[in-house]
Amino acid sequence: MSVDAVPIRRSRRRRSDSWIGVASISPAILLITVLFVVPLVLMLWMSLNNWSFLGKPTFIGLENYVRAFTTDTTFVNSIVFTLVYTVIITPILFVGGLALALFVKRPGKASGLFRTIFFTPYVVGFAAASFLWLWFVNDSVGPISAATSAFGIDLDQTSWLVEKWPGLVVVITMVTWKVIGFQMILLLSGLQGVPEELLEAAAIDGAGWFRRLFSVILPLMKPTVIMVLVFSISGSLLAFEQFFLITTGRPNNETITAVYWIYNVSFTKFELGYGAALSVVMLVLLLVVTAIQLKFLKGRSDED
């Protein structure tokens, strides 16, 4: 990955060799077909049925899809909320991750230590991290209130888990704390591939720090940037546990994400067919968003 920045346009191998490419992707394609495509087709079939968790399914055509966009206002609201969350969290993680990557890029033991520290929260599972933060911000038994009251500050935390925006801030803080170190690592390996000579040359030409970042560094690590953004945006659009455990939808189910609602529909209301339909809608949405990103970010400079 780190080499992605090497500024040489590669002409791919001749078509007669392409069987080697096909052969080498075949294990992956086989696994993905059996354990992703087949279940996905089954899920598509489920989505066309009134499929209770247990009991006999009945075919109802596109009724589930119609319902998703007509009577189920919670679903539409949850998609909007998910998009809002994604729009906020993505730049925070990307810019923050890039800044950290630039920060720990310089060689030496201390850099390695900081790198490890920034990465550490990422090893905590999402559910565990959410529980942890739920406890941190608890206004009667959590450590934040302990720390503030130890300094004699009477911090009013009551709104943190009750109102929409404060709740969102708590979640975003948690996710940033947990995930940013991973984005740092990804971007760091992209940065490693930017040749030092090019940066020096740009500096000699009088390019300032920002100029170097935007005209040399970022373009050269474009494949990494695309990958990080695709990964980060898909992950945010599928956000679930952090809201399920921290805000639990408060207030009035305004902080429910799409996947949260899918889980609720499938395993609390036992409407698995409907849950499948909502999952298909989300898959389509994510594919469209990704396709747009790839098209938009790749521009003309890169093939396929």
Binding site: F36, P39, L238, V259, I262, S266, F267, L272, S279, L287
Partner: peptide, 22 residues
């Protein structure tokens, strides 16, 4: 490659039921 990427984009919770069957 796009099919491969799609694996990143599907809500997993419901997919588990057919996955178990497979």
């Amino acid at each position: 490659f796009f099919v491969v990427l799609a694996g990143l984009m599907v809500p997993f919770t419901v997919l588990l039921t057919p996955l178990l069957v497979v």
